[in-house]
Amino acid sequence: MFNSIHHVAIICSDYEKSKHFYTAILGFTVIAENYREARQSYKLDLKLPDGGQLELFSFPNPPKRPSSPEALGLRHLAFDVASLEETCDYLLSKGVAVEAIRIDEFTGRKFTFFKDPDGLPLELYQQVTL
């Protein structure tokens, strides 16, 4: 019945800053960008390498996230990467703070966290230990 996740939607506080982060730093490709006058809102559709999508929205005065990452609702968004160390080094070179690499106690896989410009927790997860 269900095949995969089609997209994840993110609301940002500073559209241009978040657009830069997700395209120029994380390297996601723009599929479409639309300004919705009635909502005073941008909607940016981004393509992930596996065909999935991120939708980036801007709204005037969105409420703050209650806490990070244990607020009720979506806890974090995880990206599968080939090399955790290389990805961390790349993010650090772009000025993105990255937590120390950890090992999942149940799977034995490497993972770590970083945040988008609004503090949304993003995870890097290495499926295959190299």
Rank of each mutant, 00 (worst) to 15 (best):
M1I: 01
N3K: 14
S4G: 03
H6G: 04
H6S: 05
H7L: 02
A9F: 06
A9G: 14
I11T: 12
C12E: 05
C12G: 04
Y15I: 01
E16V: 05
E16F: 05
S18D: 01
K19P: 01
K19V: 02
H20Y: 04
F21M: 03
Y22M: 02
Y22H: 03
Y22G: 01
G27Y: 06
F28G: 05
F28K: 07
T29W: 09
V30S: 04
I31Q: 14
E33P: 10
E33G: 06
E33A: 03
N34L: 00
Y35T: 11
Y35E: 02
Y35V: 06
R36V: 07
E37I: 13
A38I: 08
R39Q: 12
Q40L: 13
S41I: 02
L44G: 05
L44F: 08
L46N: 04
L46E: 02
L46M: 06
L48H: 03
L48W: 04
L48A: 04
P49S: 11
P49I: 07
P49D: 05
D50M: 14
D50R: 15
D50F: 15
D50H: 15
D50P: 14
Q53N: 13
Q53R: 15
L54D: 04
L56D: 07
S58V: 08
S58D: 09
N61Y: 12
P62Q: 08
P62K: 07
K64E: 15
K64M: 12
P66G: 02
S68W: 01
P69H: 07
E70K: 06
E70Y: 10
A71M: 01
A71L: 01
L72S: 08
L74V: 08
L74A: 11
L74C: 11
H76L: 02
F79N: 05
F79Q: 02
F79V: 00
A82E: 11
S83Y: 12
L84Y: 02
L84F: 05
E86A: 10
E86H: 07
T87G: 06
T87Q: 07
C88N: 00
C88F: 05
C88E: 00
C88R: 00
L91C: 09
L92E: 00
L92V: 14
K94E: 11
G95L: 05
G95W: 04
G95R: 04
V96L: 04
V96S: 01
A97K: 09
V98Q: 00
V98I: 05
V98A: 04
V98H: 01
E99R: 04
A100V: 11
A100L: 11
I101V: 14
R102K: 08
R102S: 15
R102W: 05
I103K: 01
D104S: 12
F106V: 12
F106D: 10
T107F: 07
T107G: 08
T107N: 11
G108M: 10
R109E: 13
K110G: 13
K110L: 15
F111N: 03
T112M: 13
F113H: 15
F113Y: 15
F113G: 13
F114C: 05
D116E: 06
P117Y: 14
D118S: 12
D118G: 11
G119T: 01
G119W: 02
P121V: 01
L122Q: 10
L122D: 10
L122K: 09
L124Y: 11
L124T: 00
Q126G: 10
Q126D: 10
V128F: 15
T129Y: 13
T129K: 14
L130S: 14
